[in-house]
């Protein structure tokens, strides 16, 4: 997990400085600055409404910043959004594909949108959907949808991919499977920026984190650094010893072990 956590020689592939994004009177992102290093898995952790998605979409050039600068691979997001789009892959929060097109057709269409061509079967096999080539997105399970969505982010051989809450709503097996896939993609040299509100995901999957709340970044660092910083302040986790759990109550009443349904 700590394969490159302390590698300081990596260059910054994303630099965000004093980014502000307002929608009317509402400030979604309030003066944030952070950077993402080449080759890492960077997580933006925060509760719903913290501004994670807006931050992501502003870097993806889907939204225009109100003020501040964003550089992706040294390219200014305000001045050359199309050049950035050409080098990144984007997964949105919900499945965002024509319901009437087959997976292979969607991949071919996305490739054409980058003025390139792909081998759709090969791409589907990469995300373990080789047998679903003729399927429609709506017929896929939650985990399969996310894997397909990730496949579409790879058609243009991006240097960074952005995943907005990729594991939200997935069952534990599907989540572990997706983590594995994200690590595999990362191992091919693709930098990954993702948002999440799962602590476990942030800790297990991400090399570095930014914690967001109410449009602000309240902390950045590796998961270990963040934990150590907290402990340095003298924080002690309150340990509650329960004499019995609800399960004990249940078993006491029914006299049977819970069985796998």
């Amino acid at each position: 997990m700590a394969k490159k956590a302390t590698n300081k020689e990596k260059k910054n592939i994303i630099e965000v400085n004093n980014l502000i994004k307002k929608f009317g009177d509402f400030t979604a992102v309030n003066d944030i600055s952070f950077h993402v290093q080449e080759g890492e898995i960077f997580g933006i952790l925060g509760p719903n409404g913290a501004g994670k998605t807006t931050t992501l979409e502003t870097i993806e050039t889907l939204q225009k910043p109100t003020s501040g600068t964003i550089l992706v691979d040294g390219i200014d997001a305000k001045r050359h959004p199309d050049d950035i789009k050409q080098r990144i892959g984007v997964q949105l929060q919900s499945t965002s594909f024509y319901p009437e097109l087959k997976l292979t057709e969607l991949l071919k269409m996305f490739a054409a949108m980058y003025d390139t061509e792909v081998n759709p079967t090969e791409m589907l096999e990469k995300v373990q959907l080789g047998d679903k080539a003729g399927s429609f997105v709506n017929k896929l399970s939650g985990g399969q949808k996310q894997r397909f969505s990730i496949a579409t982010t790879l058609v243009n051989k991006p240097i960074v991919i952005f995943l907005d809450e990729p594991t939200t709503g997935l069952d534990p097996q599907a989540r572990l499977n997706l983590w594995q896939m994200i690590r595999e993609i990362n191992n091919t040299g693709v930098t990954i920026v993702l948002t999440t509100h799962y602590m476990e995901e942030a800790e297990q999957l991400c090399d570095r984190l930014a914690i967001m709340d109410s449009g602000k970044i309240v902390a950045t660092g590796t998961p270990r650094e963040l934990i150590e910083n907290l402990l340095k302040t003298g924080f002690k986790k309150e340990i509650v010893r329960k004499d019995a759990s609800l399960e004990d109550v249940f078993l006491h009443l029914t006299g049977k072990e819970l069985r796998d349904a």
């Binding site: 889907l62 789009k85 050409q86 949105l92 929060q93 965002s96 594909f97 024509y98 980058y114 243009n156």
Partner: peptide, 16 residues
């Protein structure tokens, strides 16, 4: 529908 299902938005994430 395409608007609501973010199909267009996903397309805007490409250089098209």
């Amino acid at each position: 529908f395409l608007k609501k299902a973010l199909v267009f938005k996903r397309m805007f994430a490409t250089p098209t």
